[in-house]
Nucleic acid binder design. Structure first.
Length: 267
DNA sequence: AGTACCACCTGACGGC
DNA sequence: TGCCGTCAGGTGGTAC
C-alpha cells in the first residue's frame, strides 16, 4: 500500500534510473488509469521531453518533463493507489505483469507504471501548486511543522486515525502508517483529536516524524521494520503487542482495518 | 465538518 | 477443479 515511505522509494528509484533520460514514446496498455489526458495526448505531450527532476508530495510523485526547444515544462503526476509501482527495464521479459503506462526512453530502456488493481492515476499537471490546492492536498507530512500540526489537531472534530489519514491536513499517511504512528504515540485511534493535551499532541507529531523517516530509510519494506513496531504484526493470527501487554486488537475504525493495543494505547 | 457507505479495481484466499 | 464470496486499500462521491 503505497504511502509516504513507499513513495520515497519510488522517488529514489526513478532518480537512479530514468532521470535525465528522454521520452521517445508513451504507450498506454490500459487507458483507465489516465485521469485528465488521453493516450495520444500523453504521448504527444511527453515525446522528446527529458525527465528532469522528480519530487514527492504526500502520495504523489511529480516528474518534471522538459524540452529544450519547447517553452515551459510539464509535470507528469503519478498516484499509485494501493498496488502501484515503477519498473525500469530493457528486455521485455523483465517487464512487470501489469504495465498500464510505459515510457519508452531514448536509451532503449522503459519505465513502466505498473498498477495491478487500477486504483492509481496518471495525469499531466501544468501548475503543481494549483493541482494540489484543487485536490485539497495539504502540506507533506514530513514538511509540516509542529505548530501547524497541533493547530490542525485542535480544530479537528473527529478521531485521531481519520485525522492522520486526512490528506488535506498533512499528506502521505495511509491506513498502515496511521496505525504505526498511533502505536508509537501510545494513543488510541478512536481518541478525539481536539481533546489531546499539548504533550500528547507533541508526542503524536514526534511519532509521525520518527515512524515516517525510519520507514523511508528502510524503503518501506515491512520485513526490515524493527520488531518493536506493530506493522509486522498485521495479517498474523493472534497478533501480540510488541511491548508485551497482550493481544493486539483488530477492528474497524472509520471503515478501515485497524490494529491497536488497548493495553498501551489509552483514551 | 465529520462520518458512513458505496464504487472503483483485481489478486489472493477460504469454503464448499 | 472451479466457482463464489470476501477482503485488502486510496480516493472520491453522496447522503446524513
Amino acid at each position: 500500500m503505497p504511502e509516504l515511505p513507499d513513495l520515497e522509494r519510488f522517488r529514489t528509484y526513478l532518480n537512479a534510473t530514468a532521470l535525465h533520460e528522454t521520452v521517445k514514446r508513451v504507450r498506454v496498455p490500459d487507458t483507465r488509469v489516465l485521469e485528465n489526458v488521453s493516450a495520444p495526448e500523453l504521448d504527444r505531450s511527453l515525446r522528446n521531453r527529458e525527465m528532469e527532476t522528480v519530487d514527492r508530495h504526500g502520495k504523489f510523485l511529480f516528474v518534471r518533463c522538459q524540452d529544450g526547444k519547447r517553452r515551459g515544462g510539464i509535470d507528469l503526476a503519478l498516484h499509485f493507489g494501493m498496488t502501484g509501482e515503477l519498473a525500469y527495464y530493457k528486455d521485455d521479459e523483465s517487464a512487470p505483469e501489469h504495465p498500464r503506462v510505459v515510457f519508452d526512453l531514448a536509451s532503449g530502456y522503459c519505465l513502466a507504471y505498473d498498477c495491478p488493481r487500477m486504483l492509481g492515476r496518471v495525469r499531466l499537471v501544468k501548475d503543481r501548486d494549483a493541482f494540489l490546492r484543487a485536490h485539497e492536498v495539504g502540506p507533506d507530512a514530513m514538511e509540516i511543522g509542529e505548530g501547524a500540526f497541533r493547530e490542525g489537531l485542535g480544530r479537528y472534530r473527529g478521531g485521531l486515525k481519520s485525522f492522520l489519514m486526512d490528506q488535506s491536513r498533512q499528506a502521505g499517511i495511509g491506513n498502515v502508517y496511521a496505525d504505526e504512528i498511533l502505536f508509537h504515540a501510545r494513543l488510541s485511534p478512536k481518541a478525539k483529536a481536539m481533546r489531546l493535551s499539548r504533550a500528547e499532541a507533541r508526542r503524536l507529531y514526534r511519532s509521525m516524524r520518527r515512524v515516517l523517516s525510519l520507514a523511508s530509510e528502510r524503503k518501506g519494506r515491512r520485513e526490515r521494520f524493527p520488531r518493536t513496531w506493530i506493522t509486522p504484526r498485521r495479517r498474523r493470527d493472534d497478533p501480540q503487542c510488541p511491548r508485551g501487554c497482550g493481544s493486539v486488537q483488530v477492528g474497524r475504525v472509520n471503515g478501515r482495518t485497524t490494529y491497536w493495543c488497548p493495553g498501551c494505547q489509552e483514551h
